[in-house]
Amino acid sequence: MTQSKITKQLVSTTINGEPVEFLCEPQQSLLECLRDILGLTGTKEGCNDGNCGACSVLLDGQLVNSCLVLGVEIEGRAVTTVEGLADWRGLHPIQQAFLEAGGFQCGFCTPGILIATKALLDRKPNPSEAEIRAWLSGNLCRCTGYDKIVRAVQAAACHLNTECEVDA
């Protein structure tokens, strides 16, 4: 099979709640499609092999590394990227909590960590510190030493959870 036979494929999907159509080649990762075709550069490329979590997105609500998903796989499905967190009211409570708690420094890991946090809190509104650390083990941060990230996740859980007493 020669390269000339590989044609672009049309992908119809939903990204951050909006219907989207794009053309891509089968070997292009979802990460490449988001960044290079759709201009959604909030999602970052760190390692391109599943280890760093900078490329985290939600696929039908499930946390995945977009560097290990093919663009063609999202046909008919729904993707949420960091660009989909804020709405017309302003920042998402998770983003607000990271801002207030200083949950980032350079910010390169932050889009992935925000998305991973959303996936965690959607699943478990009140995670323990150990659960937060275990869940975020696939998201590497070179700057913060993680403590402030954990505090930010705890604060976000509080904001999103009416029964929680704020102590963060």
């Binding site: 979590g53 696929l59 290990l68 991973a116 083990s137």
Partner: peptide, 9 residues
């Protein structure tokens, strides 16, 4: 096997 994101794939 992997962290939360790898686990889902």
């Amino acid at each position: 096997i992997g962290g939360a994101a790898i686990q889902r794939r």
